[in-house]
């Protein structure tokens, strides 16, 4: 592991991820309206809300796949909107992204999917080191025997785990995860949650997780962001949100998680 890849120790003084008055629209449709929140290094943020309220858009803004119409998106101290191609590439090397659909490259085997970023970004690595890194990531998600398979030959849950392995293979400091448990059975979903919890406690990986699984979110999250109708309904620790005693919010969170 190089210094660049090594996860930083927990430090909540500098926000690892922050939104400052962020708005985003697609055509006439407002997706996010003046959203502000921040989390420190090593913290886990769970983003909750009904479908279509801009949760996935929030993640894509964080990694610079989309640009905000207004406001600032900060990732590890960088203003994402001001980064050029090289700056964006450097920032993304410290981040991992698991897409809702896993988004594996269907023309490459699972093994090659994981090796691709290692070949491109760590050209000084020997083939043996790349092999070790890929096998380590596959083992983390329990797919050590499935590396040779093509993505089309995997079940939805296995594709999700392969996607997570690809996000982990570069040992990111920040992990962005879009619905890790959607389409998975309870046992596999719980295994994924355990893995994320391990990354949080052992490697202090900063995470932003979009989820509908409220039980998993409560196990994992240091902070909740609750989105409703393009606005920020609530932001805070689970304890803070519970302590508010806001029945509407509690009901919304529990309904969102169903």
């Amino acid at each position: 592991m190089t210094d660049e890849q090594r996860p930083a120790s927990p430090d909540n003084n500098t926000p690892a991820l922050a939104f400052d008055g962020v708005s985003k629209s697609f055509g006439d449709r407002k997706i996010l309206d003046n959203i502000s929140f921040s989390i420190g290094t090593g913290e886990v943020l769970c983003i909750l809300g009904r479908s279509g309220t801009g949760k996935s858009v929030t993640l894509k803004l964080m990694i610079g796949l989309l640009k905000a119409d207004a406001g600032k998106v900060l990732a590890m101290g960088d203003d994402v909107a001001t980064l050029d191609g090289v700056g964006l590439s450097k920032m993304r090397r410290k981040m991992g992204f698991l897409f809702q659909s896993a988004a594996l490259f269907d023309s490459l085997s699972v093994w090659d999917n994981l090796a691709l970023p290692l070949h491109r970004l760590n050209q000084t690595r020997s083939p043996g080191e790349i092999k070790d890194a890929v096998e380590e990531a596959l083992e983390q998600v329990g797919l050590e025997k499935d590396g040779g398979k093509m993505p089309g030959a995997l079940s939805g849950g296995m594709q999700k785990r392969a996607g997570l392995a690809r996000a982990l293979v570069l040992h990111p400091q920040v992990l962005l995860i879009d619905e890790p448990s959607s389409g998975l059975d309870r046992i596999t979903a719980s295994e994924i949650d355990d893995l994320l919890l391990k990354l949080k406690t052992e490697q202090h990986t900063t995470m932003a997780v979009v989820t509908h699984d409220i039980h998993g979110a409560r196990r994992l999250a240091d902070k909740f962001v609750v989105l409703d109708q393009s606005r920020l309904l609530a932001f805070g620790t689970p304890g803070e949100l519970d302590a508010r005693g806001d029945q509407h919010l509690n009901q919304f969170i529990s309904e969102t998680g169903q």
Binding site: K60, I63, L65, G85, S89, K90, R92, R93, M95, G96, F97, F99, S101, A103, L104, F105, D106, S107, L116, P117, R120, L121, R166, L170
Partner: peptide
């Protein structure tokens, strides 16, 4: 068709998130 499918299934976005041009 291949590239359009990759765009529709977010594979091109995934390549970008891996810092690959």
């Amino acid at each position: 068709a291949e590239l359009a499918n990759m765009r529709a299934t977010e594979q091109i976005d995934a390549i970008e998130t891996l810092s690959v041009d």
